[in-house]
Amino acid sequence: MSLPVLVIAANDDWPTDRVVTELTGRGAEVFRMDTADFPQQLSLTGRIDRAHGWRGELATVHRTVALPRVGAVYYRAPGAFQFLKAMTGPEERFAAAQARAGLGGVLSVLDCRWVNHPTFMARAEYKPVQLDAARACGLRIPATLITNRADAVRRFAADISGPLICKPVASPVLIEDGRLKAVYTHRLTPDDLADLRGIDTTAHLFQAWIDKSHEVRLTVVGSRMFAAEVHAGSDAAHEDWRADYGSLTYATTTVPPDVEFGMRRLMERLQLVYGAADFVVDPAGRWWFLEVNPCGQWDWIEGATGQPIAAAIADELQGVS
């Protein structure tokens, strides 16, 4: 009998539903938990001593899983811990740190297959780390500047023969003024460059604009690669395809051998099993690496292309090569 798969994801993460369905359809035992359920609906008991590593269990009112039996973990953006409403702010922050170190610490040492291990995901979330690793692995990257100095931006613009883009170094979304807003990649105009106020308020990322034939979303699951061309149908999508999903069309494609080789090296270097990478393909057919998202969305691309990504994730969790 196969060992249980521990799924750590927000309860409302619907793509995870597809992985759970795939696993249970194969007869696998699944224990799904959301860190938002800890400590009120999820309990942890973990013991360690000289003779044994971590033993104990995770339990809800519905099921229990013994920690040493866990054969694989699927980790995908679980929710924040939820504590008693009567707690004060300081009590809640203290409790959250304890929960993170206690629950997170015990789970992090589970010696099993991970898709992906959160420690490696956390490091790989840094765009500067990704770009450095991609370059070292032989992937083609655009010239990039990260700075809080306006004069450095002007020098970079002078050094680059073509246009520049600006995009967030971290999450592109925020809620202000009561509304959710997104910051997509923006191709800078001369007017933008003439007024660089605000550069010194935080770190900013600038990059050489790469002329595009189209873009590619390359979803990597273990040794398998699922490449999908993303064709923009509007000016906004041409600049950043996330800005206009409705205009996009998709087509399955193949990965050039040098890109495949570099991508495998990159995944190994970042110690990622799963990654959603974005490439620009220029008019000469060259692939330019933009980023790899260790928690990137995949469900919509599976729906658009028929690429069996959920099944591949399940394969990886079950050790099916």
Partner: peptide, 8 residues
Amino acid sequence: ALEAFPLS
């Protein structure tokens, strides 16, 4: 591991 147990 304690440095990183990312939550949303």
